[in-house]
Design a protein around this nucleic acid. Structure first.
Lengths: 262, 262
DNA sequence: GTAGCTCGCCAACATATGTGAGGGCCAAAT
DNA sequence: ATTTGGCCCTCACATATGTTGGCGAGCTAC
Protein backbone atom coordinates (compact mmCIF):
# COMPACT_ATOMS: atom_id res chain seq x y z
CA UNK A 1 0.00 0.00 0.00
CA UNK A 2 2.97 2.26 0.57
CA UNK A 3 4.16 1.54 -2.89
CA UNK A 4 3.54 4.93 -4.49
CA UNK A 5 4.87 6.85 -1.53
CA UNK A 6 8.06 4.85 -1.34
CA UNK A 7 8.65 5.14 -5.06
CA UNK A 8 8.09 8.85 -4.94
CA UNK A 9 10.41 9.52 -2.02
CA UNK A 10 13.07 7.30 -3.52
CA UNK A 11 13.51 9.96 -6.19
CA UNK A 12 14.63 12.36 -3.48
CA UNK A 13 16.78 10.31 -1.15
CA UNK A 14 18.00 6.80 -0.58
CA UNK A 15 15.92 5.26 2.18
CA UNK A 16 17.42 2.71 4.56
CA UNK A 17 15.49 -0.11 6.15
CA UNK A 18 15.13 1.98 9.26
CA UNK A 19 13.71 4.82 7.18
CA UNK A 20 11.19 2.44 5.67
CA UNK A 21 10.18 1.26 9.10
CA UNK A 22 9.60 4.84 10.28
CA UNK A 23 7.56 5.53 7.18
CA UNK A 24 5.38 2.46 7.62
CA UNK A 25 4.85 3.39 11.23
CA UNK A 26 3.58 6.91 10.67
CA UNK A 27 1.22 6.02 7.84
CA UNK A 28 -0.19 2.91 9.51
CA UNK A 29 -3.65 4.46 9.98
CA UNK A 30 -4.68 4.83 6.38
CA UNK A 31 -8.31 5.08 5.39
CA UNK A 32 -10.49 5.09 2.33
CA UNK A 33 -11.65 8.46 1.01
CA UNK A 34 -14.53 9.26 -1.34
CA UNK A 35 -14.45 11.41 -4.50
CA UNK A 36 -15.18 15.11 -3.98
CA UNK A 37 -14.52 14.86 -0.27
CA UNK A 38 -13.25 18.00 1.42
CA UNK A 39 -10.27 16.98 3.54
CA UNK A 40 -9.06 20.37 4.72
CA UNK A 41 -10.82 23.70 4.62
CA UNK A 42 -9.08 27.02 4.07
CA UNK A 43 -8.85 28.60 7.48
CA UNK A 44 -9.02 25.37 9.48
CA UNK A 45 -6.81 25.35 12.52
CA UNK A 46 -5.88 21.94 11.32
CA UNK A 47 -2.60 20.35 12.12
CA UNK A 48 -2.75 17.05 10.34
CA UNK A 49 -0.38 16.05 7.60
CA UNK A 50 -2.02 14.13 4.78
CA UNK A 51 -0.38 11.49 2.65
CA UNK A 52 -2.14 10.42 -0.49
CA UNK A 53 -1.33 6.75 -0.95
CA UNK A 54 -3.73 6.19 -3.83
CA UNK A 55 -6.00 8.51 -5.78
CA UNK A 56 -6.04 12.14 -6.84
CA UNK A 57 -6.82 15.28 -4.89
CA UNK A 58 -6.20 18.99 -5.27
CA UNK A 59 -5.43 22.08 -3.25
CA UNK A 60 -7.48 25.16 -3.99
CA UNK A 61 -7.95 28.72 -2.87
CA UNK A 62 -10.96 30.97 -3.15
CA UNK A 63 -11.18 34.68 -3.82
CA UNK A 64 -13.75 36.84 -2.07
CA UNK A 65 -15.55 37.07 -5.41
CA UNK A 66 -16.09 33.33 -5.27
CA UNK A 67 -13.62 32.57 -8.03
CA UNK A 68 -11.54 29.51 -7.43
CA UNK A 69 -8.14 28.31 -8.48
CA UNK A 70 -6.64 24.89 -8.08
CA UNK A 71 -3.04 25.58 -7.18
CA UNK A 72 -1.76 22.05 -7.45
CA UNK A 73 -2.77 18.49 -7.97
CA UNK A 74 -2.02 15.83 -5.39
CA UNK A 75 -1.21 12.54 -7.07
CA UNK A 76 -0.56 9.08 -5.64
CA UNK A 77 2.46 9.18 -3.34
CA UNK A 78 2.21 12.91 -2.75
CA UNK A 79 2.32 14.42 0.67
CA UNK A 80 -0.14 17.19 1.24
CA UNK A 81 0.08 19.84 3.79
CA UNK A 82 3.59 18.91 4.72
CA UNK A 83 4.63 19.94 8.17
CA UNK A 84 1.80 22.34 8.34
CA UNK A 85 1.79 21.95 12.07
CA UNK A 86 4.11 24.94 12.07
CA UNK A 87 1.44 27.21 10.64
CA UNK A 88 -1.51 28.34 12.66
CA UNK A 89 -4.12 27.40 10.08
CA UNK A 90 -4.56 26.06 6.59
CA UNK A 91 -4.05 28.61 3.82
CA UNK A 92 -5.78 26.45 1.24
CA UNK A 93 -8.38 23.71 0.96
CA UNK A 94 -7.73 20.11 0.01
CA UNK A 95 -10.36 18.08 -1.82
CA UNK A 96 -10.27 14.59 -3.30
CA UNK A 97 -11.02 14.04 -6.96
CA UNK A 98 -11.24 10.27 -6.92
CA UNK A 99 -11.71 7.71 -4.24
CA UNK A 100 -8.43 6.71 -2.73
CA UNK A 101 -6.39 5.79 0.30
CA UNK A 102 -5.13 8.46 2.60
CA UNK A 103 -3.07 8.46 5.75
CA UNK A 104 -3.44 11.19 8.31
CA UNK A 105 -0.44 11.85 10.50
CA UNK A 106 -0.44 13.58 13.82
CA UNK A 107 2.18 16.34 14.11
CA UNK A 108 3.89 14.73 17.07
CA UNK A 109 4.45 11.58 15.04
CA UNK A 110 5.96 13.58 12.24
CA UNK A 111 8.36 15.15 14.69
CA UNK A 112 9.39 11.79 16.07
CA UNK A 113 9.82 10.26 12.65
CA UNK A 114 11.96 13.16 11.50
CA UNK A 115 14.15 12.87 14.56
CA UNK A 116 14.56 9.15 14.00
CA UNK A 117 15.31 9.11 10.34
CA UNK A 118 17.86 11.08 8.38
CA UNK A 119 16.58 9.59 5.15
CA UNK A 120 13.09 10.80 5.92
CA UNK A 121 14.32 14.30 6.72
CA UNK A 122 16.08 14.36 3.37
CA UNK A 123 13.13 12.91 1.52
CA UNK A 124 10.67 15.38 2.97
CA UNK A 125 12.94 18.31 2.29
CA UNK A 126 13.29 17.10 -1.27
CA UNK A 127 9.55 16.69 -1.57
CA UNK A 128 9.05 20.20 -0.36
CA UNK A 129 11.52 21.54 -2.91
CA UNK A 130 9.79 19.61 -5.64
CA UNK A 131 6.48 21.15 -4.64
CA UNK A 132 8.03 24.61 -4.88
CA UNK A 133 9.43 23.82 -8.27
CA UNK A 134 6.09 22.59 -9.55
CA UNK A 135 4.38 25.72 -8.27
CA UNK A 136 6.94 27.93 -10.02
CA UNK A 137 6.46 26.04 -13.24
CA UNK A 138 2.71 26.49 -12.93
CA UNK A 139 3.24 30.21 -12.51
CA UNK A 140 5.20 30.57 -15.70
CA UNK A 141 2.85 28.26 -17.58
CA UNK A 142 -0.30 30.03 -16.62
CA UNK A 143 1.31 33.42 -16.93
CA UNK A 144 3.19 33.16 -20.18
CA UNK A 145 1.63 30.51 -22.37
CA UNK A 146 -1.45 30.26 -24.51
CA UNK A 147 -4.36 28.12 -23.42
CA UNK A 148 -3.78 25.00 -25.53
CA UNK A 149 -0.11 24.89 -24.56
CA UNK A 150 -0.97 25.34 -20.89
CA UNK A 151 -3.26 22.36 -20.96
CA UNK A 152 -0.81 20.27 -22.94
CA UNK A 153 1.91 21.07 -20.43
CA UNK A 154 -0.27 20.04 -17.53
CA UNK A 155 -1.01 16.74 -19.23
CA UNK A 156 2.69 16.12 -19.76
CA UNK A 157 3.44 16.95 -16.15
CA UNK A 158 0.77 14.64 -14.79
CA UNK A 159 1.98 11.87 -17.08
CA UNK A 160 5.53 12.29 -15.85
CA UNK A 161 4.50 12.41 -12.21
CA UNK A 162 2.30 9.34 -12.53
CA UNK A 163 5.06 7.53 -14.37
CA UNK A 164 7.44 8.36 -11.53
CA UNK A 165 5.27 6.44 -9.09
CA UNK A 166 4.73 3.64 -11.55
CA UNK A 167 1.18 4.31 -12.59
CA UNK A 168 0.91 3.08 -16.14
CA UNK A 169 0.45 5.91 -18.62
CA UNK A 170 1.25 4.07 -21.80
CA UNK A 171 -1.45 4.82 -24.32
CA UNK A 172 -3.95 6.32 -21.92
CA UNK A 173 -4.56 6.92 -18.26
CA UNK A 174 -7.39 7.88 -15.90
CA UNK A 175 -8.14 11.59 -15.97
CA UNK A 176 -10.66 12.45 -13.26
CA UNK A 177 -10.80 16.21 -13.90
CA UNK A 178 -13.93 17.72 -15.44
CA UNK A 179 -13.37 20.51 -17.94
CA UNK A 180 -14.48 22.96 -15.32
CA UNK A 181 -11.91 21.70 -12.83
CA UNK A 182 -9.26 21.67 -15.53
CA UNK A 183 -10.04 25.33 -16.06
CA UNK A 184 -9.50 25.98 -12.39
CA UNK A 185 -6.06 24.39 -12.65
CA UNK A 186 -4.97 26.25 -15.75
CA UNK A 187 -6.61 29.56 -14.85
CA UNK A 188 -9.20 29.80 -17.58
CA UNK A 189 -12.94 29.30 -18.06
CA UNK A 190 -14.47 25.95 -18.89
CA UNK A 191 -15.59 27.32 -22.26
CA UNK A 192 -12.03 28.09 -23.20
CA UNK A 193 -10.86 24.75 -21.88
CA UNK A 194 -13.34 23.16 -24.24
CA UNK A 195 -12.08 25.22 -27.20
CA UNK A 196 -8.47 24.41 -26.38
CA UNK A 197 -9.10 20.70 -25.95
CA UNK A 198 -10.66 20.71 -29.38
CA UNK A 199 -7.51 22.24 -30.83
CA UNK A 200 -5.39 19.56 -29.19
CA UNK A 201 -7.77 16.86 -30.40
CA UNK A 202 -7.86 18.19 -33.95
CA UNK A 203 -4.07 18.15 -34.04
CA UNK A 204 -4.11 14.53 -32.98
CA UNK A 205 -2.23 15.32 -29.80
CA UNK A 206 -4.72 13.99 -27.29
CA UNK A 207 -8.12 12.40 -27.01
CA UNK A 208 -10.11 12.87 -23.83
CA UNK A 209 -13.00 10.46 -23.51
CA UNK A 210 -14.94 9.14 -20.56
CA UNK A 211 -12.47 10.53 -18.10
CA UNK A 212 -9.54 8.86 -19.79
CA UNK A 213 -6.70 10.81 -21.35
CA UNK A 214 -5.32 9.25 -24.50
CA UNK A 215 -1.90 10.43 -25.64
CA UNK A 216 -0.95 8.65 -28.83
CA UNK A 217 2.50 10.23 -29.06
CA UNK A 218 3.89 11.62 -25.82
CA UNK A 219 6.99 13.01 -27.52
CA UNK A 220 4.91 15.04 -29.94
CA UNK A 221 2.78 16.40 -27.11
CA UNK A 222 5.88 17.34 -25.12
CA UNK A 223 7.32 19.07 -28.17
CA UNK A 224 4.11 20.97 -28.76
CA UNK A 225 4.22 22.58 -25.32
CA UNK A 226 7.96 22.57 -24.87
CA UNK A 227 7.80 20.29 -21.86
CA UNK A 228 11.03 19.24 -20.20
CA UNK A 229 10.75 17.20 -17.02
CA UNK A 230 13.84 18.67 -15.36
CA UNK A 231 11.90 20.77 -12.92
CA UNK A 232 10.27 17.68 -11.44
CA UNK A 233 13.65 16.58 -10.15
CA UNK A 234 12.91 12.95 -10.75
CA UNK A 235 15.59 10.38 -11.46
CA UNK A 236 18.14 12.91 -10.42
CA UNK A 237 21.20 10.83 -11.02
CA UNK A 238 20.63 10.73 -14.74
CA UNK A 239 19.32 14.25 -14.98
CA UNK A 240 22.18 15.46 -17.15
CA UNK A 241 21.81 12.67 -19.63
CA UNK A 242 18.09 12.91 -19.92
CA UNK A 243 18.21 16.63 -20.33
CA UNK A 244 20.47 16.52 -23.36
CA UNK A 245 18.50 13.64 -24.87
CA UNK A 246 15.32 15.56 -24.35
CA UNK A 247 16.67 18.70 -26.00
CA UNK A 248 17.72 16.82 -29.09
CA UNK A 249 14.40 15.11 -29.54
CA UNK A 250 12.53 18.29 -28.68
CA UNK A 251 14.15 20.19 -31.53
CA UNK A 252 13.17 17.48 -34.00
CA UNK A 253 9.62 17.41 -32.70
CA UNK A 254 9.24 21.14 -32.83
CA UNK A 255 10.31 21.20 -36.43
CA UNK A 256 7.79 18.48 -37.19
CA UNK A 257 4.97 20.27 -35.44
CA UNK A 258 5.80 23.58 -37.05
CA UNK A 259 5.53 21.92 -40.43
CA UNK A 260 2.17 20.43 -39.53
CA UNK A 261 0.74 23.68 -38.21
CA UNK A 262 1.67 25.68 -41.32
CA UNK B 1 23.58 42.70 10.10
CA UNK B 2 21.50 39.61 10.84
CA UNK B 3 18.68 41.81 11.91
CA UNK B 4 16.26 41.17 9.05
CA UNK B 5 16.92 37.45 9.00
CA UNK B 6 16.37 37.06 12.73
CA UNK B 7 13.20 39.11 12.64
CA UNK B 8 11.87 37.10 9.77
CA UNK B 9 12.59 33.70 11.28
CA UNK B 10 11.16 34.82 14.62
CA UNK B 11 7.77 34.81 12.90
CA UNK B 12 8.13 31.09 12.40
CA UNK B 13 9.71 29.78 15.58
CA UNK B 14 11.13 30.91 18.87
CA UNK B 15 14.91 30.89 18.60
CA UNK B 16 17.10 30.11 21.59
CA UNK B 17 20.52 31.58 22.17
CA UNK B 18 22.01 28.44 20.80
CA UNK B 19 19.91 28.80 17.67
CA UNK B 20 21.11 32.36 17.26
CA UNK B 21 24.70 31.23 17.58
CA UNK B 22 24.22 28.61 14.89
CA UNK B 23 22.63 31.17 12.64
CA UNK B 24 25.44 33.68 13.10
CA UNK B 25 27.95 30.99 12.39
CA UNK B 26 26.56 29.83 9.07
CA UNK B 27 26.04 33.31 7.66
CA UNK B 28 29.40 34.69 8.81
CA UNK B 29 30.75 35.03 5.27
CA UNK B 30 28.42 37.68 3.95
CA UNK B 31 29.38 39.83 1.01
CA UNK B 32 28.18 42.87 -0.88
CA UNK B 33 26.26 42.29 -4.09
CA UNK B 34 25.57 44.69 -6.96
CA UNK B 35 22.24 45.47 -8.59
CA UNK B 36 21.29 43.27 -11.55
CA UNK B 37 23.82 40.66 -10.60
CA UNK B 38 23.04 37.10 -11.59
CA UNK B 39 23.57 34.93 -8.52
CA UNK B 40 22.31 31.59 -9.79
CA UNK B 41 21.61 30.47 -13.31
CA UNK B 42 18.83 28.09 -14.29
CA UNK B 43 20.51 24.76 -14.86
CA UNK B 44 23.53 25.43 -12.68
CA UNK B 45 24.70 22.41 -10.77
CA UNK B 46 24.91 24.80 -7.92
CA UNK B 47 24.53 23.71 -4.37
CA UNK B 48 24.81 26.92 -2.40
CA UNK B 49 22.08 28.27 -0.21
CA UNK B 50 21.69 32.04 -0.40
CA UNK B 51 20.51 34.28 2.39
CA UNK B 52 19.54 37.83 1.52
CA UNK B 53 20.46 39.91 4.53
CA UNK B 54 19.77 43.26 2.86
CA UNK B 55 18.41 44.22 -0.54
CA UNK B 56 15.97 42.80 -3.06
CA UNK B 57 16.39 40.00 -5.58
CA UNK B 58 14.12 37.77 -7.62
CA UNK B 59 13.82 34.24 -8.92
CA UNK B 60 12.91 33.83 -12.55
CA UNK B 61 12.36 31.21 -15.17
CA UNK B 62 12.65 31.41 -18.94
CA UNK B 63 10.59 29.74 -21.63
CA UNK B 64 12.17 28.45 -24.80
CA UNK B 65 10.49 31.37 -26.59
CA UNK B 66 12.56 33.74 -24.48
CA UNK B 67 9.63 34.92 -22.39
CA UNK B 68 10.43 35.41 -18.77
CA UNK B 69 8.50 35.27 -15.54
CA UNK B 70 9.59 36.36 -12.11
CA UNK B 71 8.15 33.72 -9.84
CA UNK B 72 8.92 35.40 -6.56
CA UNK B 73 10.65 38.34 -4.97
CA UNK B 74 13.38 37.84 -2.43
CA UNK B 75 13.23 40.56 0.22
CA UNK B 76 15.55 41.34 3.14
CA UNK B 77 15.70 38.39 5.52
CA UNK B 78 14.57 35.89 2.90
CA UNK B 79 16.36 32.67 2.27
CA UNK B 80 16.75 31.78 -1.34
CA UNK B 81 17.28 28.40 -2.73
CA UNK B 82 16.64 26.75 0.58
CA UNK B 83 18.23 23.37 0.95
CA UNK B 84 18.69 23.16 -2.73
CA UNK B 85 21.63 20.93 -2.12
CA UNK B 86 19.15 18.09 -2.41
CA UNK B 87 18.39 18.87 -6.02
CA UNK B 88 20.81 18.16 -8.79
CA UNK B 89 20.64 21.61 -10.32
CA UNK B 90 18.88 24.94 -10.06
CA UNK B 91 15.42 25.03 -11.61
CA UNK B 92 15.36 28.82 -11.70
CA UNK B 93 17.67 31.81 -11.83
CA UNK B 94 18.27 34.29 -9.04
CA UNK B 95 19.15 37.91 -9.79
CA UNK B 96 19.59 40.91 -7.54
CA UNK B 97 17.50 44.02 -8.03
CA UNK B 98 19.35 46.33 -5.68
CA UNK B 99 22.75 46.26 -4.09
CA UNK B 100 22.67 44.34 -0.86
CA UNK B 101 24.33 41.96 1.52
CA UNK B 102 24.20 38.26 0.88
CA UNK B 103 25.51 35.23 2.66
CA UNK B 104 26.35 32.06 0.82
CA UNK B 105 26.18 28.85 2.79
CA UNK B 106 27.86 25.61 1.93
CA UNK B 107 25.54 22.60 2.01
CA UNK B 108 27.62 20.79 4.62
CA UNK B 109 27.28 23.74 6.96
CA UNK B 110 23.55 23.75 6.53
CA UNK B 111 23.42 20.09 7.45
CA UNK B 112 25.49 20.65 10.57
CA UNK B 113 23.46 23.65 11.65
CA UNK B 114 20.22 21.77 11.18
CA UNK B 115 21.49 18.88 13.26
CA UNK B 116 22.56 21.24 16.02
CA UNK B 117 19.52 23.41 16.29
CA UNK B 118 15.90 22.42 16.69
CA UNK B 119 14.82 26.06 16.45
CA UNK B 120 16.56 26.40 13.11
CA UNK B 121 14.95 23.24 11.78
CA UNK B 122 11.59 24.65 12.75
CA UNK B 123 12.33 28.09 11.36
CA UNK B 124 13.51 26.76 8.03
CA UNK B 125 10.54 24.45 7.69
CA UNK B 126 8.28 27.38 8.45
CA UNK B 127 10.09 29.54 5.93
CA UNK B 128 9.64 26.87 3.32
CA UNK B 129 5.91 26.66 4.05
CA UNK B 130 5.61 30.42 3.80
CA UNK B 131 7.30 30.33 0.41
CA UNK B 132 4.78 27.75 -0.76
CA UNK B 133 1.93 29.83 0.50
CA UNK B 134 3.21 32.94 -1.28
CA UNK B 135 3.59 30.99 -4.51
CA UNK B 136 0.03 29.69 -4.25
CA UNK B 137 -1.27 33.16 -3.63
CA UNK B 138 0.63 34.39 -6.68
CA UNK B 139 -1.01 31.67 -8.74
CA UNK B 140 -4.50 32.69 -7.81
CA UNK B 141 -3.67 36.39 -8.18
CA UNK B 142 -2.19 36.12 -11.61
CA UNK B 143 -4.75 33.59 -12.70
CA UNK B 144 -7.98 35.05 -11.44
CA UNK B 145 -7.65 38.79 -11.02
CA UNK B 146 -7.58 41.77 -13.35
CA UNK B 147 -4.37 43.62 -13.97
CA UNK B 148 -4.80 46.61 -11.64
CA UNK B 149 -5.86 44.38 -8.77
CA UNK B 150 -2.93 42.06 -9.36
CA UNK B 151 -0.49 44.90 -9.10
CA UNK B 152 -2.22 46.35 -6.06
CA UNK B 153 -2.08 43.00 -4.35
CA UNK B 154 1.61 42.65 -5.03
CA UNK B 155 2.22 46.07 -3.53
CA UNK B 156 0.26 45.13 -0.41
CA UNK B 157 2.18 41.89 -0.07
CA UNK B 158 5.57 43.55 -0.40
CA UNK B 159 4.53 46.18 2.14
CA UNK B 160 3.50 43.50 4.59
CA UNK B 161 6.64 41.46 4.09
CA UNK B 162 8.90 44.49 4.45
CA UNK B 163 7.00 45.54 7.54
CA UNK B 164 7.54 42.08 9.02
CA UNK B 165 11.30 42.59 8.90
CA UNK B 166 11.02 46.13 10.16
CA UNK B 167 11.70 48.01 6.98
CA UNK B 168 9.76 51.24 7.28
CA UNK B 169 6.87 51.41 4.82
CA UNK B 170 4.96 54.29 6.38
CA UNK B 171 4.10 56.75 3.64
CA UNK B 172 6.42 55.37 1.01
CA UNK B 173 9.16 52.84 0.48
CA UNK B 174 11.88 51.99 -2.03
CA UNK B 175 10.53 50.17 -5.08
CA UNK B 176 13.38 48.99 -7.27
CA UNK B 177 11.28 47.26 -9.95
CA UNK B 178 10.99 48.82 -13.39
CA UNK B 179 7.60 48.57 -15.06
CA UNK B 180 9.00 45.88 -17.29
CA UNK B 181 10.14 43.81 -14.32
CA UNK B 182 6.83 44.41 -12.59
CA UNK B 183 5.16 42.95 -15.65
CA UNK B 184 7.35 39.88 -15.36
CA UNK B 185 6.15 39.43 -11.78
CA UNK B 186 2.46 39.90 -12.50
CA UNK B 187 2.45 38.09 -15.83
CA UNK B 188 1.62 40.96 -18.15
CA UNK B 189 3.35 43.25 -20.61
CA UNK B 190 4.99 46.49 -19.63
CA UNK B 191 2.42 48.42 -21.65
CA UNK B 192 -0.36 46.97 -19.63
CA UNK B 193 1.54 47.53 -16.40
CA UNK B 194 1.74 51.18 -17.37
CA UNK B 195 -1.99 51.37 -18.09
CA UNK B 196 -2.82 49.67 -14.81
CA UNK B 197 -0.50 51.86 -12.76
CA UNK B 198 -2.28 54.84 -14.26
CA UNK B 199 -5.60 53.48 -13.07
CA UNK B 200 -4.23 53.03 -9.56
CA UNK B 201 -2.71 56.50 -9.65
CA UNK B 202 -5.89 58.15 -10.93
CA UNK B 203 -7.82 56.50 -8.11
CA UNK B 204 -5.39 57.98 -5.61
CA UNK B 205 -4.35 54.53 -4.45
CA UNK B 206 -0.64 54.75 -5.18
CA UNK B 207 1.98 57.05 -6.59
CA UNK B 208 5.10 55.55 -8.08
CA UNK B 209 7.86 58.06 -8.57
CA UNK B 210 11.61 57.76 -8.85
CA UNK B 211 11.57 54.17 -7.73
CA UNK B 212 9.62 54.97 -4.61
CA UNK B 213 6.17 53.57 -3.97
CA UNK B 214 3.87 55.99 -2.20
CA UNK B 215 0.79 54.49 -0.55
CA UNK B 216 -1.26 57.26 1.04
CA UNK B 217 -3.86 54.91 2.50
CA UNK B 218 -2.80 51.30 2.90
CA UNK B 219 -6.22 50.25 4.11
CA UNK B 220 -7.89 51.58 1.00
CA UNK B 221 -5.36 49.84 -1.22
CA UNK B 222 -5.87 46.56 0.64
CA UNK B 223 -9.63 46.93 0.31
CA UNK B 224 -9.30 47.63 -3.41
CA UNK B 225 -7.55 44.34 -4.06
CA UNK B 226 -9.06 42.36 -1.25
CA UNK B 227 -5.72 41.76 0.42
CA UNK B 228 -5.61 39.83 3.67
CA UNK B 229 -2.19 39.03 5.07
CA UNK B 230 -3.16 35.67 6.58
CA UNK B 231 -1.37 33.65 3.96
CA UNK B 232 1.94 35.22 4.92
CA UNK B 233 1.73 33.49 8.30
CA UNK B 234 3.30 36.43 10.08
CA UNK B 235 2.29 37.68 13.49
CA UNK B 236 2.74 34.26 14.87
CA UNK B 237 0.72 33.09 17.77
CA UNK B 238 3.04 32.43 20.67
CA UNK B 239 0.53 30.21 22.46
CA UNK B 240 0.46 27.99 19.42
CA UNK B 241 4.21 27.62 19.37
CA UNK B 242 4.40 26.89 23.07
CA UNK B 243 1.87 24.14 22.56
CA UNK B 244 3.88 22.49 19.81
CA UNK B 245 7.03 22.83 21.88
CA UNK B 246 5.32 20.87 24.60
CA UNK B 247 4.40 18.23 22.12
CA UNK B 248 7.97 18.10 20.98
CA UNK B 249 9.14 17.41 24.48
CA UNK B 250 7.01 14.35 25.04
CA UNK B 251 8.65 11.18 26.25
CA UNK B 252 8.38 9.78 22.78
CA UNK B 253 10.33 12.63 21.40
CA UNK B 254 13.05 12.44 24.00
CA UNK B 255 13.44 8.77 23.35
CA UNK B 256 13.65 9.41 19.67
CA UNK B 257 16.35 12.00 20.07
CA UNK B 258 18.34 9.78 22.40
CA UNK B 259 18.20 7.05 19.82
CA UNK B 260 19.47 9.38 17.15
CA UNK B 261 22.40 10.51 19.26
CA UNK B 262 23.62 6.94 19.70
C1' DG C 1 -41.88 8.22 -18.11
C1' DT C 2 -40.44 12.66 -16.75
C1' DA C 3 -38.15 16.11 -14.28
C1' DG C 4 -33.93 17.76 -12.92
C1' DC C 5 -29.14 17.62 -12.81
C1' DT C 6 -24.24 17.62 -14.45
C1' DC C 7 -21.25 17.64 -18.09
C1' DG C 8 -19.52 18.22 -22.79
C1' DC C 9 -20.05 20.97 -26.71
C1' DC C 10 -20.79 25.06 -29.52
C1' DA C 11 -21.76 29.99 -31.35
C1' DA C 12 -22.07 35.12 -31.04
C1' DC C 13 -20.55 38.75 -28.98
C1' DA C 14 -17.77 41.54 -25.28
C1' DT C 15 -13.52 42.85 -23.31
C1' DA C 16 -9.01 42.51 -21.05
C1' DT C 17 -4.70 42.26 -22.50
C1' DG C 18 -0.99 41.94 -26.17
C1' DT C 19 1.53 44.10 -30.23
C1' DG C 20 3.95 47.49 -32.62
C1' DA C 21 5.25 51.99 -32.99
C1' DG C 22 6.64 56.32 -31.50
C1' DG C 23 7.68 60.58 -28.45
C1' DG C 24 9.78 62.64 -24.32
C1' DC C 25 12.92 62.75 -20.53
C1' DC C 26 17.20 62.05 -18.42
C1' DA C 27 21.71 60.25 -17.26
C1' DA C 28 25.92 58.25 -19.07
C1' DA C 29 29.11 57.92 -22.68
C1' DT C 30 31.72 60.02 -26.51
C1' DA D 1 27.54 69.44 -27.67
C1' DT D 2 25.93 65.39 -29.33
C1' DT D 3 24.73 60.74 -29.16
C1' DT D 4 23.12 56.69 -26.99
C1' DG D 5 20.27 53.94 -24.31
C1' DG D 6 17.03 52.98 -20.68
C1' DC D 7 12.76 53.96 -18.92
C1' DC D 8 8.16 55.99 -18.72
C1' DC D 9 4.21 57.09 -21.25
C1' DT D 10 0.65 56.85 -24.88
C1' DC D 11 -2.04 55.62 -29.13
C1' DA D 12 -4.23 52.49 -32.60
C1' DC D 13 -5.05 48.19 -33.61
C1' DA D 14 -5.01 42.89 -33.04
C1' DT D 15 -6.28 38.87 -30.55
C1' DA D 16 -6.77 35.59 -26.78
C1' DT D 17 -9.88 34.79 -23.56
C1' DG D 18 -14.34 35.77 -20.98
C1' DT D 19 -19.53 35.95 -21.01
C1' DT D 20 -23.95 34.59 -22.02
C1' DG D 21 -26.93 31.48 -23.67
C1' DG D 22 -28.31 27.39 -25.73
C1' DC D 23 -28.49 22.22 -27.12
C1' DG D 24 -28.12 17.34 -26.21
C1' DA D 25 -26.47 13.05 -23.88
C1' DG D 26 -26.36 10.60 -19.85
C1' DC D 27 -27.68 9.81 -15.16
C1' DT D 28 -30.66 9.76 -10.92
C1' DA D 29 -34.87 10.56 -8.22
C1' DC D 30 -39.45 10.19 -8.08
Amino acid sequence: MLDRLVRKLAHGAALSENDHACLSHIVRHARIVEPQQRLVDEGDANQRVLVMLEGWAYRSKLLASGERLITDLILPGDISHVLTNLLGYADHSVTTLTSGIMAEIHPAEIEVALECSLGLRRALRWSSLQTDSILRQALINNGRRLAATRIAHLICEVRARLHAVEVSVEESFAWPLTQDELGDVTAMTKVHVNRSLRVLRENGLILLQQRRMHVPDAGRLAAFCDFTPDYLHLGYNSAEVRRSEMRASTMEMQAAVRQRVD
